[in-house]
Computed example of a mutant assay.
Amino acid sequence: MRKRTAIGAILTFAALAVCAIYFGWAIHFASGIGLGWRGLGSAWPYLVAGVLTVGCVLAAFVWLAFFSERRGYDDRAGGSEP
C-alpha cells in the first residue's frame, strides 16, 4: 500500500471514530434532558417526515440535473465552442 493511501485510510478511520464517539455522547447526554426517551415518541413522526421530505427534494434536484444534462439544455448555456 502506498504511503498516501495509508495516511488517507488512517485519517478516514480516525474521522469515523471521532464521529461515532460524538454521536454516542450526544445520544447519552440527550437521553437525560426533559422527558428523555419517552419524550422522543411524540417527535418521531415529524423527524421521519422531515428526513423523507429532504430526501425527496434532494432526489428531485439530482433527477433534474441528470435530465437537463441528457437533453443538452446545459450545452446552450455557453462555454467554449468546439
Rank of each mutant, 00 (worst) to 15 (best):
F23C: 03
A60N: 13
A59I: 06
W25M: 05
L52N: 14
V51W: 11
A60I: 13
L16S: 13
L16K: 08
G8W: 01
G50Y: 04
H28D: 11
A65C: 12
A9P: 00
W25V: 01
A17P: 00
D74F: 05
R71A: 02
V18P: 00
L35P: 10
V51H: 09
S68H: 03
A14Y: 02
W37Q: 09
A17S: 07
S68E: 05
L64N: 08
R38K: 11
C56I: 07
T53L: 10
L35Y: 06
A30G: 04
F29R: 06
E69R: 03
F23P: 00
A49H: 10
A77N: 07
D74S: 14
D75R: 15
F61L: 14
D74T: 12
R38V: 14
S31P: 00
G72Y: 03
G55I: 04
G78L: 06
G41E: 11
I21C: 10
T12R: 11
G34I: 09
P45Q: 05
I27F: 07
F67C: 02
G24L: 03
L47M: 15
G78T: 04
D75C: 09
L11C: 12
A17I: 09
A26Y: 02
A20M: 08
V54Q: 11
A59T: 11
G36R: 03
A59H: 05
S42Y: 13
P82H: 15
I27H: 03
L64F: 08
A17E: 01
S42E: 15
I10H: 05
P45T: 10
I10E: 09
H28M: 10
Y22Q: 00
I7V: 09
W25S: 09
A30V: 11
V51Y: 12
E69Y: 10
W63G: 02
R4H: 08
L47N: 15
T53E: 01
L16R: 07
G36P: 00
R71L: 01
A20P: 01
V54P: 00
A17M: 14
Y73R: 04
A9Y: 10
L40D: 15
F29Q: 06
I7T: 07
W63Q: 03
I10G: 07
W63S: 12
A20Y: 08
W37Y: 03
A65I: 09
Y22L: 11
C19A: 15
F67H: 06
S68W: 01
G72F: 01
A60T: 15
W25I: 02
V62Y: 08
A6Y: 06
G8L: 01
L52Y: 04
K3P: 00
R76F: 15
I10W: 07
I7N: 04
F13P: 00
L52H: 14
E69I: 03
G24H: 04
A14Q: 07
D75H: 12
D75N: 13
K3I: 03
F13S: 09
S68A: 12
T53H: 07
I27N: 12
W63D: 02
V54S: 04
G41M: 14
